[in-house]
Structures are given as C-alpha cells and as structure tokens.
C-alpha cells in the first residue's frame, strides 16, 4: 500500500489516484450545505407530514375505540332494559292471570253460595208447604175419620 501510494504520488505530480487537494474541504462544505438544504426541504417537512398522519391515525383510532366502547355499553344497557321489561311484562301477565283466577274463583264461589242459598230457601219453602199440606191433609183425614165414626155410630 505504501509503495503504491508513493508511486501514485511520485509518478504523477499532476494527477494520480490519491491526489488530495482542495477538492476535499470544498466537498465537505458542499455535503454539509446539502445536509442543511435536505433537512429544510426533505427531512423536516416529510417527517412532519408522516408524524401528523401517525398522530391523526392514532387519535382517530382512539376515538373509534371510544365510540365502539360506548356503543357496546349502550347495547348492554339496552339489553338489560329489554330483559327487565320482559320480566316485568311476564310478572304483569302472571299477576293478571292470578287476579283473574282469583276473581273467577270468588265469582264462582259467590254464585255457588247464592245458588246454594236459593236452593236451600226453596227446599225450606217446599218443606214448609209439604208440612202444611200434610198437616191440612192430616186434619182433613182426622175430620173425615171422625165423620165416618160419627156416621157409623149414628146409623146403629
């Protein structure tokens, strides 16, 4: 390497592979300038755009997640309400059925009691009428018997 370097330097004072001159610092300055220009024109604006998009996406995603959670909460809430309403309706139906049953039974009982009462009254009336009739028949029979006895006794 060394001999080659020497050869390149010695063999061609004007030129050579390893010909270092003012190109080096000027190129360095040029690259530094390019860095600042590219920073202003490329890295900063593109980075800003990408990061803005990323934050936009993350906030939208967070919002969507929040909305989804809210929807789910509402859904469970409504489901709960629906279930409660169903239970309430069921309870009302059962209560109404029981009430109706009770009313039916009481009405039936009342009607039966009334029927029994009037049958009893009728029976009593029939009994009293029968008794009367029997009494009057007995009295008639007694009288007729007495009359028969009297007539027989009178005929002798």
């Amino acid at each position: 390497m060394t001999s080659w370097l020497l050869l390149a330097a010695a063999g061609a004072p004007e030129g050579g592979l390893f010909d270092l001159d003012a190109t080096l610092p000027l190129m360095a300055v040029q690259v530094v300038l390019l860095t600042f220009i590219l920073n202003a024109l490329f890295f900063r604006p593109v980075g800003k755009t990408v990061e803005e998009r990323e934050s936009y996406i993350s906030t939208s995603r967070a919002e969507a997640k929040q909305q989804l959670a809210q929807t789910e909460r509402l859904e469970t809430d409504l489901r709960q309400q629906l279930r409660e309403a169903r239970q309430q309706a069921q309870a009302t139906i059962v209560a109404a059925e029981q009430e109706m049953d009770r009313l039916y039974r009481s009405a039936l009982a009342a009607a039966q009691a009334e029927a029994n009462g009037s049958r009893e009254a009728a029976r009593l009336e029939i009994d009293s009428l029968r008794k009367q009739a029997e009494d009057s028949l007995n009295a008639e029979a007694d009288r007729l018997g007495d009359l028969i006895v009297t007539r027989l006794l009178a005929a002798q």
Partner: peptide, 11 residues
C-alpha cells in the same frame, strides 16, 4: 474520487 470519500469520512 478519494477526496470525496475522505471528506465524507472526516465529516
């Protein structure tokens, strides 16, 4: 060119 690469490396 060696000047360019040395410039970059020194940077």
């Amino acid at each position: 060119d060696i000047n360019t690469t040395i410039a970059l490396a020194l940077l």
